[in-house]
Computed example of a mutant assay.
Amino acid sequence: MFLPLGLAVAGLAVYAWLSSEEQYAMDSYHRSSRHLSEETHTRRQQLNSYRKGNQAVYEYHKYVELHYQAVQTAGHCFAHYDEQKQLLVMLDGKIQQHIAAIITLKKQRDQACGMQKQRIREQLHTMRGYLTEAKGSYQELKAEKQRLLTEVRELNQQTKELKLYIKDHCGSYGNDWYQRSLERRKSRLA
């Protein structure tokens, strides 16, 4: 078993000159030694298994928490993205109002004379400034919206990859979690 063959032979040789009481004590010692050796081996295996199991459980919890946080962040980003779309609609409405006001002022300018024409020109200059600012804000917000959309898509892709990693690398805990997430998704879609 765990005793080398030489020790077993030496043990037999020792037995020849021991009394029965001493032989019993030696046999008892060897049995205890073998039992202790087997138990030590078993405990080491259990500890290694436990350590590996705890590491897997730790990683499972760490990755599931990271997944949850990524989903929450993506949700916040998407809400912000919706706000940006609403702001773009509002800015587009303002741009259209400024354009309509400029067209109206041009018509009034063409019909006005003297000081009234000068005031309308000043108003036109002011309205064109507003229109330029509104268009600039619209373009900046549109670029920011596109950047945020790209970031949300990348985050969603990485979150999907993390979900698959949890399923494939976190043992039965990860696989069970993945299956539950699929069931939750099916129930939401139903």
Score class of each variant (00 low, 15 high):
residue 79 A to V: 09
residue 154 E to N: 06
residue 135 K to T: 05
residue 140 E to A: 10
residue 30 H to G: 10
residue 44 R to S: 11
residue 51 R to M: 08
residue 121 R to E: 04
residue 72 Q to N: 01
residue 146 Q to R: 13
residue 116 Q to Y: 11
residue 113 C to H: 03
residue 169 H to S: 12
residue 110 D to T: 01
residue 79 A to F: 11
residue 45 Q to P: 00
residue 122 E to S: 09
residue 21 E to T: 14
residue 177 W to V: 02
residue 64 V to Y: 06
residue 23 Q to E: 15
residue 105 L to G: 02
residue 14 V to Q: 11
residue 121 R to P: 03
residue 55 Q to T: 07
residue 173 Y to L: 15
residue 10 A to G: 01
residue 135 K to A: 05
residue 184 R to S: 03
residue 80 H to L: 15
residue 88 L to G: 00
residue 132 T to V: 08
residue 164 L to F: 14
residue 63 Y to H: 01
residue 92 D to A: 06
residue 173 Y to R: 01
residue 86 Q to D: 11
residue 103 I to L: 08
residue 25 A to W: 04
residue 19 S to M: 08
residue 96 Q to V: 07
residue 137 S to I: 05
residue 72 Q to M: 07
residue 45 Q to G: 13
residue 183 E to I: 14
residue 190 A to C: 09
residue 14 V to Y: 11
residue 172 S to P: 10
residue 72 Q to V: 03
residue 59 E to Y: 10
residue 97 Q to K: 01
residue 70 A to S: 07
residue 76 H to F: 12
residue 22 E to N: 08
residue 113 C to P: 00
residue 114 G to P: 03
residue 118 Q to L: 06
residue 30 H to D: 10
residue 100 A to K: 03
residue 62 K to L: 09
residue 94 K to V: 14
residue 162 L to F: 15
residue 3 L to G: 00
residue 98 H to V: 07
residue 145 K to Q: 10
residue 109 R to A: 10
residue 170 C to S: 05
residue 47 L to F: 10
residue 49 S to K: 03
residue 55 Q to L: 15
residue 156 N to D: 10
residue 14 V to T: 03
residue 144 E to Q: 00
residue 164 L to Y: 15
residue 152 V to F: 04
residue 61 H to V: 08
residue 169 H to A: 07
residue 160 K to D: 13
residue 15 Y to F: 12
residue 48 N to S: 13
residue 96 Q to Y: 03
residue 130 Y to K: 00
residue 187 S to I: 13
residue 69 Q to P: 00
residue 119 R to D: 11
residue 70 A to D: 05
residue 64 V to W: 04
residue 131 L to N: 01
residue 21 E to R: 11
residue 77 C to Y: 11
